[in-house]
Every structure is written in C-alpha cells, then in structure tokens.
Amino acid sequence: MTTLLTVKNLSKTYDSKAAVKNISFEFQSGKCIALIGPNGAGKTTILRTLAGLLKPSSGTVKFTDMKENDDLRKHIGYLPQYPVFYSWMTGMEFLVYSGQLAFLSKTEAGKRAEDLLVKVGISEAKHQRIGKYSGGMKQRLGIAQAIIHKPKLLMLDEPVSSLDPIGRREVLTLMEELKKEMTILFSTHILSDADEISDELLLLRKGEIVEAGSMSELRQKYQTSKIELEFQDDLENYQLKVNKLTNVMDSYIDRNVLHVTATDIIQARQEILTAAANENWPLTNFTLNRASLEDMFMKVVNN
C-alpha cells in the first residue's frame, strides 16, 4: 500500500479565526476515508483547501508522485456540498465540457461521459437541461463530472446529506462501487453513512483532528464494558440479583433496560447467563454493548 497524499501542519485562518488548526495526515491509495465532525468543525475547509479552492494559511498538501509545479487539480475530482451547474446545458454537454477542461479530447470526453451517465444512472436524462434535474440527479451528475478525468482522489463534501432516503441509498451504492477504482475522501455528519462505507475515519472538532483510525481500531479503543438486559418482569427484582454477582460493578435502569457495568465483561457475561439459566430469568434481550460510532463521536467531541 502506498501513500497517495500527505498533508502536513495544515492551518487555515479566516479573519484571525482558525477554521483548521495545524492538522497532519496521510492517505493510503485505495482507501475510503470519512471526515466526520459536527457542523463548523472544518470539514468543508479541509476539502476546499485540498481542492485548491482555498489557499492554506500554512502547511503543505502533497501528492506522493507529483512532479514539481504540476497542477494538483489534475489528480483530484471534487464535488461541493451544493453543486451548481450551468442550467442551460444538458447533462451530457456539461460532462463533455468538464472533460475537455481536464484535457480530454472531444471524442474521449464524449465516450467517457456516455459511460459515466450510465454508471451514475441518469443516462435517460442526458439530453435534458440540467435546470430540470432533481436534487438526486444533480448529485449524481456532480459525481460524474468529478471523475470524468479519472482522478486519483475523489473528494465529496456531504454527498448524501441533502438527499431523500432513496437518493441517499443510490449515492451510497455508487460510492461503494467507486471505492474499487479510486481513493475517496468524503465528509459527513451522518455517522451511519461513514460507518457503512469508509475504511478509515478522521474525527474533527473545532478544526483539529481529535481521533483517527480504522473503524475496528476505534471500536476497540472506545469499547465500553457494558451489558444491556431486558426482562419481561419487573426489572428492579433482577437488578438486585445482578448487583450481587461478583464481576458486576454497578447497574442502572433507563427506559426499561438494565444497564450493567462490569469489572470484567467476559466473566460478567458468564455469570449473568449462568444465573439466568439456573433461575429461569425471563430475559427478552441480552446485549454485549459494542461502542457505536455515535457513542464514540459524542465521547470524542464532548471531551
């Protein structure tokens, strides 16, 4: 695995307010990376800086195999959060135009545009004015224009947050496919989307990277030793019994769920399940709590 892009000490300040503070990271090629953070965390600023639309206040952005003075924009595709097109053009015309701007010949651009229109699923609307496209169609056209020149890195700013559930599903499926062909960096505040398609996460808060790593690494790190129990009967009876177990530290009831914290989660599981079997507890649910992305996010962001 090779490093595609190295970002070093990147900072971006607007009118003495820091939007991005001294961040450094590397991308491996072929990965799908999610930038996660609450609104205002600096996600869009980072993407725009990598796309060359903003100039870093300090720090560098470098592609590994890029020559000196080479135009960084040749290697990236970018879809802003709210893409705006020339509404008088048709989808096909816009793609060919984008392709030609990226130095494809007219015939090459035309061929590539045809392929991509099929791939993103709007080929039946290719001769329609973009002004008449729906939000989901524009988003898909936006993805197509971003990859028309086969960039090494595709950057998507909140690609699904403005879409309805169907459009969202379609775009996620498309991203899943594109993952096989290129490195993708996308920002989102919808955690389940990040969980679903990204290999790695960068968690941002107030312009800083507060956590980074693969999903499983982060899960392990933020794993809580918690067991959730639900019963058919009155919970409090069982709370007393559970509390007496040797490996149980503490427990509390919240919305008809008994939350159990354990000193050793594996031992506690053993004890609870044995007791439940022996005493015939009317258990309806037993969950060994895995840290959800949301828990992790809240933990990291609130720290």
């Binding site: 796309a51 802003p80 224009q145």
Partner: peptide, 13 residues
Amino acid sequence: KSGVSELILVKPV
C-alpha cells in the same frame, strides 16, 4: 456567486 465556478475551477483550468 452562484457557485458554478467551484466546479469549473477545480478542473485544471
């Protein structure tokens, strides 16, 4: 102002 330049100018124009 409309934002269309954001699509055009990230191409190697």
